[in-house]
Write a protein that binds this DNA or RNA. Structure first.
Length: 868
RNA sequence: GUGGACGUGGCGGAAUCGGUAGACGCUGCCGACUUAAAAUCGGUUUCCUGUAAGGAGUGCGGGUUCAAGUCCCGCCGUCCGCACCA
């Protein structure tokens, strides 16, 4: 190797060496250790902790890079920053791995954590690893059990019979997402609706608070707040009583949001699961069993519900209209009435509700219009569409002529005074079912005793640790069939009893980890005073897929703790940011295969075109197009889509980090796309990012650091201050793509600038500006120019406000709104001066051709518009 | 069905209050350096006509305004959430 070549090698920034060197340096110095007792203002930056699947993917890299830039920036602006990392380590995949590979879920999970921790450290995130936690360790879930017991003692936990999706082959409960076309996703067995005794948390106690609390979250995306509001689904209405003529029950309670339409009622319908329906089944009502069976057969899948026909069973009973004892309404059991919303019973108003109309047409029930847009519309017939337009009441006796709003109030007032109903609020939100019949989760700290009933485990006995010796070779809950684990003595009476074998939903684990990060003593879940020094989380960053469940549960958990007096925080996350996905082009080959006999019949062709996804690394880019290297088939480029294994368009971060270094990967994640939108991965993009890193490095070459003190460079100095101020704003707003653009602009100017003290200052400052984004390069460059200490500990550049003001501005000259010329003028130049300058413009003169303008609009420091 | 978001060059996108559309990056093209390549640097890249100079242009159609990517009305398209919620 020639000397020449050696020199050029040395001139390049070597990420492989620098990355590990600085990562070790930060770790050795404890640079990112968060000090509970620091007098500095506190800043808590948190990204949603990962599930330890085994490998970091690009989505993680993007998510954690954003948080890291903000966290490092906050450090530079004088904050004591808490930026922790942990593992959402319980859950199904570990049990699946146990079943498929015969490994213990704990071993599998801990090995994954070790591998992913190393990968995260390889990217150089400024994390306080001393606070690392994994939800699958007893130190964590034992404290969660303590919190569960506190909630239990406060009456926020209860047990009730609840319908679940039961897989009879795997002998387990399935989440709705795990039921595909009515079959278990693993076993393929037809899923049964089974009633099981399940544990619930009373999130509905907080429904109002959780809804109203949304209003205080001004640093949350409106979209997420709206989704939560819809999920909570508060409706105001009337709960009223219909007396029944005969039958097993004296009456039914019905909920309606439209009490105004009460005179349009033509039937009452109850859910199949309603006590009235069940009583009729018990009484052996003819034909009812077949109807109930029919209803049960209809799945719960969205598509099925949409197409399902409205079905009813006429009970033969009649309900007495509360406002007219002589008016009797038929009572049906109907498949479209939900038991777990309102009271499980409705009155049908076909004229103004599409569902009720479909039902009424099928069973030939009367359709009476009670709302009309205008008096002339009072008799307008209802055909196939229910009329939901607002208007005035008609055919409604004492309500006639009122608006719906007035009529609602009138009906509620009358119901309350006559005692047959009350104005109420109902929620769509249901209590949170936390029971899971699985092994790899937090054991619920409860004992069932034949004498004492349900008994809470005393806190002194916590943690209830999962048994290690479990098998996954047969279906079912390993905890339940473990020979000894569940057999314990009752903590109250000492008699032999049975331990609860359900474990907690993993959403419980992620509902309070951010508190445990802030304070994690060994003997209790957290220390109130210490936790409150950090909380609430200032900026929380994660995927929008958690907009409802995780974020709602965490908000509930925080409020429950406040209710218990354990934490004086209402909302856990002051700022929320939902980042977009990392996407990639997809590639497909199309191959004609011989058709099977069935396909021949269906399509009438001998061959069938089959598209196969092709991985990017198998592509052969030739002059005549794209080809699949292993097969030689032509490849066509498909849509840009979320990286997924099934479409083979994933890019593994590990080789990218090895090849381009951590900084290039980080820079790519921040460039171009706004962080809330999807980011298309591209080879060209990562190469551009790697080039940027080298460009910044070249600027700090000592050879360039010559100072010609004779001339200052005021325009570079101004640009520098503008850039520093702008980047600070952009980073605070998480608009990294804009910050990146500003860096490029400064870089371009710096490269062209002649040596001067200002140039030297700008190069130095540039290192500070890029330090949160590409920290390894920044450390190396900082060291190279002789900066003090680590750049990670340096302060953000001070912006001189005077440097942000220009004394000359460009004024746009428009004629009739069209740009014709621009002129330079002193900032703050008076209007008449600008007007004179504009009219004097040669181009304006040509257009005006001697005529005088009709009107001139002058916007100071911006433009002059001449109306000709 | 229903609620919401979005629509700007070849691509990702920028444009703070209604005030110079296309910053910045990527790609492509032309050129310099080099025996050559890599690396790097310079130029160019919305479209049309093109010498100059113009003209058109932010999904489509209207409107308000001196001025509209931005505001209003009506369409079209894409994406997301919820979904028999009484």
């Amino acid at each position: 190797m020639s000397d020449d070549r050696n020199d050029r090698q040395a001139a390049r920034f070597d990420p492989a060496a620098a990355d590990s060197r600085w990562q070790q340096e930060w770790a050795a110095r404890g640079t990112f250790h968060a000090d509970d007792d620091s007098p500095k203002p506190k800043s808590y930056v948190l990204e949603m902790f990962p599930y330890p699947s085994g490998r970091i993917h690009m989505g993680h890299v993007r998510n954690y890079t954003m948080g890291d830039v903000l966290a490092r920036f906050r450090r530079m602006t004088g904050h004591e920053v808490l930026h922790p990392m942990g593992w959402d380590a319980f859950g199904m995949p570990a049990e699946n791995a146990a079943m498929e590979k015969g490994v213990h879920p704990g071993d599998w999970t801990r090995a994954n954590i070790a591998a992913m921790r190393e990968q995260l450290q390889r990217i150089g995130f400024g994390l306080d690893w001393s606070r690392e936690l994994a939800t699958c360790e007893p130190e964590y879930y034992g404290q969660e059990q303590a919190l569960f017991l506190d909630m239990f003692a406060a009456g926020l936990v209860y047990r009730k019979e609840s319908a679940v999706n039961w897989d009879p082959v795997d002998m387990t409960v399935l989440a709705n997402e795990q039921v595909i076309d009515g079959r278990g996703w693993r076993s393929g067995a037809l899923v049964e609706r089974r009633k099981l005794s399940q544990w619930f948390l009373k999130i509905t106690d907080f429904a109002d608070e959780l809804l109203e609390g949304l209003e205080s979250l001004d640093q949350w995306p409106d979209k997420v707040k709206l989704m939560q509001a819809n999920w909570i689904g508060r409706s105001r209405g009337l709960r009223l009583h219909f007396a029944l003529d005969g039958g097993p029950l004296p009456g039914v309670e019905v909920f309606t949001t439209r009490p105004d339409t009460i005179f349009g009622a033509s039937f009452v319908a109850v859910s199949v699961d309603h006590p009235l329906a069940q009583a009729l089944v018990a009484a052996g009502t003819p034909g009812i069993d077949a109807f109930v069976a029919e209803c049960r057969r209809t799945g719960t899948a969205a598509a099925e519900i949409e197409t399902a026909e409205k079905l009813g069973f006429d009970t033969g009973l009649s309900a007495v209209h509360p406002l007219d004892p002589t008016w009797k309404l038929p009572v049906f059991i109907a498949n479209f009435v939900l038991m777990d919303y309102g009271t499980g019973a409705v009155f049908g108003v076909p004229a103004h509700d599409q569902r009720d109309l479909d039902f009424a047409r099928k069973y030939m029930l009367p359709v009476t219009r009670v709302v009309a847009a205008s008096p002339e519309q009072a008799e307008a017939p209802i055909h196939d569409e229910a009329d939901s337009t607002p208007g005035l009441m008609v055919h409604s006796r004492f309500l006639d002529g009122m608006t719906s709003e007035a009529a609602k109030a009138a009906v509620i007032a009358r119901a309350e005074s006559e005692g047959w109903g009350t104005g109420t609020t109902v929620f769509r939100l249901r209590d949170w079912g936390v029971s899971r019949q699985r092994y790899w989760g937090t054991p619920i700290p409860i004992v069932h005793c034949g004498t004492c009933g349900v008994v809470a485990v005393p806190k002194a006995q916590l943690p209830i640790v999962l048994p290690e010796d479990v098998s996954f070779d047969i279906p079912g809950n390993p905890l339940d069939r473990h020979p000894t684990w569940k057999h314990v003595d009752c903590p109250k009476c000492g008699q032999p009893a049975r331990r609860e074998t359900d474990t907690l939903d993993t959403f419980a684990d992620s509902s309070w980890y951010y508190i445990r990060f802030a304070s994690g003593p060994v003997d209790r879940p957290f220390d109130k005073a210490v936790a409150e020094r950090w909380l609430p989380v200032g900026q929380y960053i994660g995927g929008v897929e958690h907009a409802i469940l995780h974020l709602l549960y965490a908000r509930f958990w925080t409020r429950a703790l406040r209710h218990l007096g354990q934490l004086d925080i209402a909302e856990p996350f002051t700022g929320l940011f939902t980042q977009g996905m990392v996407t990639h082009e997809t590639y497909q080959t199309k191959v004609d295969l011989p058709a099977t006999p069935e396909e021949k019949g269906a399509l009438g062709t001998d061959t069938v075109s089959v598209s196969t996804w092709v991985a990017p690394e198998d592509l052969d880019r030739r002059a005549d197009g794209l080809f699949h290297r292993p097969t030689g088939h032509p490849v066509h480029v498909g849509r840009v889509e979320k990286m997924s294994k099934s479409k083979k368009n994933t890019v593994d971060p590990a080789p990218i980090l090895d090849r381009y270094g951590a900084d290039a990967a980080r820079w790519f994640m921040l460039s171009d796309s706004p962080p809330e939108r999807d980011l298309p991965w591209s080879e060209a993009g990562i190469e551009g990012a790697a080039r940027l890193v080298q460009r910044v490095w070249r600027l700090t070459e000592p050879a360039l650091d010559t100072v010609d003190a004779s001339n200052g460079d005021i325009s570079l100095r101004k640009l520098l201050h503008r850039t520093s101020a702008g980047i600070a704003e952009d980073v605070e707003a998480l608009q990294f793509n804009k910050a990146v653009a500003k860096i490029f602009t400064l870089l371009g100017a710096l490269e062209k600038a002649a040596p001067s003290p200002d140039r030297r200052e700008a190069a130095r400052t540039l290192i500070l500006l890029v330090a949160p984004m590409i920290p390894h390069l920044a450390e190396s460059a900082w060291e190279r120019i002789g900066g003090d200490g680590l750049v990670a500990d340096a302060a953000w550049p001070v912006v001189d406000p005077a440097m942000l003001v220009d004394d000359e501005v460009t004024i746009a000259i428009q004629v009739n709104g069209k740009l014709r010329d621009t002129i330079m003028a002193a900032k703050g130049a008076p209007k008449d001066e600008l007007e004179a300058l504009a009219i004097a413009s040669a181009k304006v003169q040509i257009i005006l051709a001697g005529a005088s303008p009709k009107k001139v609009i002058v916007v100071p420091d911006r433009l002059v518009n001449i109306v000709a």
